[in-house]
């Protein structure tokens, strides 16, 4: 039954290597291995968490971008509408202005034309007067080419003056 009897020699020979291995592994192996594994686990968890957050942020950004895009589009519509309205009003204004300007010009032209016509009429009148004087002169000259007639005229004129004097 020596199988069931502990041997002091073997116990000592068991304790020494076991404790040496325990000391070495406790100092150099187990802490670094466990720390390494836990660090890695933490790193993986953190990475997953930050990836999730990044995804969420990305989704938020996308949504925000869409919102911005939609806003921009509506604003564009607004601007276009405004521009169209402004164009209309501008054209209207321009048209009105053009009309009034045209009327003014027309009026002025009419006035000018009237003025010019008066002037022309006046000038023509003057010309006619001159011409008639000329013509009268020529006629008179023709009438008075003999002496009798001249004396007759002078007499008549004198008579006329006398009459007027009396």
């Amino acid at each position: 039954m020596e199988l069931f009897k502990p041997e002091i020699g073997l116990i000592i020979w068991m304790l020494i290597p076991f404790l040496v291995v325990f000391g070495l592994l406790a100092k150099f192996a187990w802490p670094s291995i466990i720390r390494g594994v836990e660090e890695r686990g933490k790193f993986i968890d953190d990475s997953l968490q930050s990836a999730k957050e990044a995804n969420e942020r990305l989704a938020g950004i996308k949504e925000e971008g869409e919102q911005i895009l939609a806003a921009a589009r509506s604003e564009q519509m607004q601007i276009l509408k405004e521009a169209a309205a402004m164009r209309e009003s501008l054209i209207e204004e321009a048209r009105k202005q053009a009309r009034s300007e045209g009327e003014k010009l027309l009026r002025k032209a009419q006035e000018d034309i009237a003025k010019e016509r008066e002037e022309a009429i006046r000038q023509i009148r003057r010309e006619v007067a001159l011409l008639s004087v000329d013509i009268a002169e020529k006629v008179i000259r023709k009438h008075l080419d003999d002496k009798d007639k001249q004396i007759d005229v002078v007499n008549r004129l004198l008579d006329e003056i006398n009459i007027s004097k009396s």
Partner: peptide, 30 residues
């Protein structure tokens, strides 16, 4: 008083050396 290095002692030492050979490089890796 018997401190002989018996078969079991050699086996224990072998186990100890193997443990060190397995776990010390592993820890260095970590």
């Amino acid at each position: 008083f018997d401190l002989s290095m018996t078969k079991n002692v050699v086996s224990i030492l072998l186990t100890a050396v193997l443990l060190l050979l397995i776990f010390l490089p592993l820890a260095r890796e970590y």
